[in-house]
């Protein structure tokens, strides 16, 4: 218990020193407790893990409140550039991160695509080529969003041309179409499949290994609560944060 408390407190102490951009290796300096509201813009695929981590962060910092805005990384990047009040941005791809911040970004997890299918895999899908069968309705993310970019890459690697019925605006919307049974298959992240395990099954395919998405996180230069943002980011990068993320199926870099 003491160990856990130390783990939780360490990033808060670190937040006080503030200047380093990389995850600090050793605790140093006396910090102040994190207070106020921390606004976090995060990729839709982080919905479950970050919601959990937000609660843990609030529990460890009674004065802090974490507010989330989940959505397609490209939409979030756009909102931030238009002046939306975000302290932390966690993107599902480096490309969308680049639209917002060039420096201070840290890759915290990686995610891999899976074929999401109905419970019990009724169409017996086993490979990426199977989603191209004429009787299969396929949903993909739009190319603008990271999961769509990754799907495009996977199909290129496999030298296949997909015929989706829809290009959805974020990964959760894509998965919902499988959950509702409106499509037979969709390319989404492994972690989204696990999060929806009671409604969908996931099928691995080898090409996914060549379309892995890096997730960068950053405390934004224009953050209103920079110390809180930094503390939350450090919390995500802490062992506790990694534990929650890997448990959900994310790979650590």
């Amino acid at each position: 218990m003491k160990k856990l408390a130390a783990l939780l407190v360490a990033p808060i102490l670190l937040a006080g020193c503030g200047s380093s951009e990389q995850p600090p290796a050793a605790p140093s300096g006396a910090g102040q407790p994190v207070t106020g509201e921390v606004t976090v813009f995060a990729a839709a695929s982080l919905t479950e893990t970050f919601t959990q981590l937000g609660k843990d962060f609030e529990a460890a910092n009674p004065g802090a409140k974490v507010k989330f805005n989940f959505g397609g990384s490209s939409a979030l990047a756009q909102q931030i550039n238009q002046g939306a009040p975000a302290d932390v941005f966690a993107s599902a791809s480096p490309a969308n991160m680049k639209q917002v911040a060039e420096t201070g970004t840290v890759t915290f997890v990686k995610n891999k695509l899976q074929i999401a299918v109905g419970k019990g895999n009724p169409h017996k899908m086993a490979s990426l080529a199977d989603v191209l069968k004429p009787e299969i309705k396929l949903a993909l993310c739009a190319e603008q969003v990271p999961c769509g970019a990754a799907a495009k890459k996977a199909f290129e690697v496999a030298k296949l041309t997909p015929k989706p019925v829809t290009l959805e605006q974020d990964v959760k919307a894509t998965l919902t179409k499988v959950k509702l049974g409106e499509v037979d298959a969709a390319l989404v992240y492994e972690t989204d499949v696990s999060a929806a395990a009671k409604d969908v099954d996931g099928v691995d395919f080898p090409e996914a290994a060549q379309a892995v998405n890096d997730y960068p996180i950053v405390t934004l230069p224009k953050a209103r609560n920079a110390s809180g943002g930094k503390a939350f980011m450090d919390f995500i990068l802490s062992d506790k944060g990694r534990q929650v993320l890997t448990k959900a199926g994310f790979d650590t870099p």
Partner: peptide
């Protein structure tokens, strides 16, 4: 309801929304 696919269901408002992201 109808999803988003160019030529079949992507109307102007949908095209605007997705274009805005990039």
């Amino acid at each position: 309801f109808a999803g988003n696919y160019p030529g079949t269901t992507q109307t102007m408002p949908l095209a605007v929304y997705l274009a805005l992201e990039q």
